[in-house]
Design a protein around this nucleic acid. Structure first.
Lengths: 235, 235
DNA sequence: CGTGTGATTGACGCCTGTCAACGTCTGTGG
DNA sequence: CCACAGACGTTGACAGGCGTCAATCACACG
């Protein structure tokens, strides 16, 4: 097995203007770097199950992780995807509750593990870090509230069109306009709370209307303006 | 006008095991008490509008406040209700975003106002307070995620039955089993994302099935076991 | 080549949103 | 004191969006 990877440096994850780790001092970053664990996960691996107790948080260094709740009759509801630089499991750790969702690897991933005590220690010693995490959480809460409104008031058709834009803003599109994440029809359905068949039918309709182009799981956005109208988005 | 009220003491709001203010030192509590403002609001008053900038947080000392987003075609989606001891507006203040919902008085209320600088000061100086607020936010985030799953997967009928239990746990029932909050049919509809007429019809059905008793806006829970089954709740 | 997962399509019907009409109650102003 | 407006509640009719079930196809993998 030539699967040995070099353990990523925390400071390499402290990228982007919104990284929480920017608020740590170099010393704290060094300590964190020393105390953390790191592992490789393959597609399909479960990192933790809904309902389990979480004793630390994971940082995504590479790959994509799907966070989902299991609802009625085992149907999964996707809460969000986490990618490079994002933390998962922090909600459960901080609230002291059991995990409110499961985490499953969607694209082969490298995750660092920060034990709970270390995180709490940092939060206690570095109030800027705590406030930054608070801000992050509040932003996520705002997104959740928006999503509630949308899922409650919009039609499936509108939600599907909208989710394409959400995926675009999270994972981007390449030069041809192709979404840089590939999801199964079922996963799309589980994001917007509908049946797989409905997603298939609606995607076909979008294609017929020249809003998108489909190539397997690759979705290309053709007419974003009209697609936004379909999604009932006006910004 | 004999409408002069005595300004409530912050320590009187620091009740219950989950109050954030328990984490403040007596001195901090005293400072907070001195710096805060306080006002009386009548039913129907808007405290702030969605999209406005929030420069502080409000603490509910008395009454009930409805937090809601305005969605498509002006339809309101109720996010939550805040009552004695709860804070509102903190999400927007902390995330630095505009208010993601409007706040409207449902039952005549007394609200204290804590300027943003004061709150941030406390968060910086008292890490236990910051962590407590973080925990609170995370719990709310967990609830939001659960709600997303429910609204996405459950039928209107199930959601309506469930919301009765949510109201029960938030506002309680009296000895006769009557919910201690009175909402219009429209407000119930706006909680679960459905039409007013659907709520009316379903409540009638619940009544016919002897699950509840209706007296205007007063709803009495008769058969909670069956009602839970209707809500598809198994705990 | 069998097996399994995912994608697709069609048929069918119910849940639920919309529209419209009407009843009820409360507060307001003449 | 009555008339009226306005908010809220109720009921019926109706259509269509969307979930469910079932059959078939496509494709990858051991």
């Amino acid at each position: 097995m030539k699967n040995i990877i070099s353990i990523p440096e925390c400071k390499d994850c402290a990228i982007g203007s919104n990284s929480l780790f920017l608020h740590l001092t170099p010393e704290q970053l060094a300590v964190l770097n020393f105390d953390k664990g790191c592992d490789v996960y393959k597609r399909g691996n479960i990192i933790y199950h809904e309902g389990s107790r979480v004793n630390g948080v994971y940082c995504v260094n590479k790959g994509i992780v799907k966070l989902y709740k299991t609802g009625l009759e085992g149907r999964e509801q996707i809460i969000r995807f986490a990618q490079k630089g994002e933390m998962i499991g922090y909600r459960s750790l901080l609230s002291g509750e059991h995990a409110c969702h499961s985490a499953k690897v969607l694209e082969d991933a490298v995750l660092c593990y920060i034990p709970g005590e270390i995180l709490f220690e940092l939060l206690r010693k570095n109030s800027e870090f705590a406030i930054a995490l608070l801000q992050f959480t509040c932003r996520e809460l705002g997104e959740a509230n928006s999503f509630i409104t949308e899922i409650a008031q919009k039609t499936v058709r509108e939600r599907l069109a909208e989710v394409l834009f959400i995926l675009k803003s999270n994972f981007g599109i390449d030069n041809d306009g192709v979404l840089q994440i590939s999801l199964t029809r079922e996963e799309l359905a589980n994001m917007i709370g509908t049946a797989t068949e409905s997603v298939i039918r609606l995607l076909s309709e979008f294609k017929d209307d020249n809003l998108i182009e489909i190539n397997g799981r690759k979705i290309k956005l053709l007419n974003q303006k009209l697609l936004k109208k379909t999604a009932n988005i006006y910004d």
